[in-house]
Computed example of a mutant assay.
Amino acid sequence: MRWWDIDPVLELEKDLFPEDAWSRGMFWSELAHARGPEATRRYVVAVDGDRLVGYAGLAASGDIADIQTVAVARGQWGTGLGGRLLTELLRAATAFECGEVMLECRIDNVRAQKLYERYGFEAIGFRRGYYQPGNVDALVMRLTMESDSGSAAGSAPEQGTEQGTEING
């Protein structure tokens, strides 16, 4: 993700997460930590032609990574794009030498929960009222990375994707 991606990312963010969308400042802050030799973040976007159709981000601290966001345009649901974005984040977690990857997922977002479960994430708890202002609970999930190969335990096979969709950092 680059600075010029922020406007289309914000449009998609507001469409998919109207109650708890990230602000422009939040994305700028994340991008500031995603560059240079001390980078602790990885953000990617998916484009189909000239249209941004997805984005995802991960933050690392020590040996733990945290998936910050994964978003796929409604017209791309069911194409495997969410899995491709997640795969890119797991590669980044491996590059950051993280042993675990954590995430929070809205308790009512069953589609996302199923994606994470296919990749080996397990539910480990809840965060009450985590998503504001809607006061929606979050399901906390964890994936333990394999130490010998550096890959994610239980990685799901890649699914088919629409032609022309590219993922860029």
Rank of each mutant, 00 (worst) to 15 (best):
R142S: 09
F27T: 05
R106T: 09
R42C: 09
V101R: 01
V110P: 00
F17P: 06
R111Y: 06
E162S: 13
I67K: 01
R128S: 13
A112Y: 05
M141T: 08
R142I: 10
G169R: 07
R127L: 11
E19G: 09
L86P: 04
S147V: 09
S147G: 11
T79M: 07
G62C: 09
V44G: 00
L58P: 01
V9K: 00
G75S: 15
G160V: 06
W4H: 14
V9C: 13
A71K: 03
A59D: 03
F96E: 05
L139P: 00
Y131G: 05
F121W: 05
F96C: 09
R106G: 07
D63M: 11
S61D: 09
R111I: 10
L12A: 05
G25P: 00
E19W: 03
L31C: 08
D7V: 13
M1Q: 07
A56K: 01
G164P: 05
R84Y: 13
T79G: 12
G83F: 03
L12Q: 01
A112C: 09
L16Y: 08
G120K: 03
G99F: 03
T40Y: 02
G75I: 03
T161K: 00
A46E: 10
K114T: 12
Q113E: 14
S61H: 10
M145H: 04
E11H: 09
G99Q: 12
E19L: 08
W77L: 14
A92E: 04
Y119W: 13
M145V: 09
A73D: 15
I107D: 13
E19D: 14
R84A: 15
A73I: 12
D137P: 06
M26G: 04
D20W: 01
E104K: 01
